[in-house]
Design a protein around this nucleic acid. Structure first.
Lengths: 113, 113
DNA sequence: ACACTATAGGTAGCAACGCTACGCAACATG
DNA sequence: CATGTTGCGTAGCGTTGCTACCTATAGTGT
């Protein structure tokens, strides 16, 4: 999978991974890898800056967990705005996928559902 | 539709538009707009550099048509390598779309086929 | 004891790509 | 004869994900 195809779609993926509940960055990464059977195996240099961007944008909020213990984890959860944004991402994806498939033709959707 | 979502997917679109037969750049642009009901209304500053890139890569070949007439048009056609590349683009799109939908869940494919 | 892997977070710099904003020209239409 | 459409082109920009690297703790193996 070429690298650039993900551009513009990552935010939706991260938001969706957090929809099921609060998670820290490393767990988000694992969720994506498992949900996609390894297709989205994103480097941490992709995950962490993206989470910071989403937090700055107010779509997720993070806080450090268990500071007394050694292992520091930053746990993120969707904000209300993030939940709205996720809805828009889903709509945008559907429109984009429909347009792509209209042009590419030929079995746009996986036939094995 | 945000701009970045197209990144990495444009080549496949252009190749697909040329699959039906040779076309000049402006016609490719119109094909994409019509096939997608206006969803992909790409600026010429996107189309032309991308076609040049594909030509340099040997996936399409272009030649000027009707030089004696005033209006100059550069007509592109798929090369053999371009046709192969289009097949790979289709496969890549299917894999990408499947992974995206696995994460986004919830009605990944348009229900109105 | 020591090495190694997995977990967990981070950043600087880069490359790629599509877009914006232009410019140029021929042809059609009113 | 002014405007709009067709048609091609490029320079420069902003965004984004990736590469490559760093730090640190916990667990596992030898």
């Amino acid at each position: 999978m070429r690298a650039e195809v993900l551009k513009g779609h990552l935010d939706g993926l991260l938001l969706a991974a957090l929809e099921a509940g609060p998670r820290h960055g490393y767990a988000v990464r694992e969720s994506l890898r498992e949900l996609t059977d390894g297709a989205f195996d994103l480097p941490t240099g992709t995950i962490y800056p993206a989470l910071h961007r989403l937090e700055r944008a107010g779509l997720i909020s993070g806080e450090w967990s268990s500071p007394e213990q050694g292992r520091r984890r930053r746990v993120y959860r969707l904000t209300a705005r993030g939940r709205r944004a996720l809805g828009e991402e889903r709509g945008g994806w559907t429109a984009f996928a429909a347009a792509m498939s209209a042009v590419l033709g030929a079995e746009p959707w996986p036939t094995t559902r």
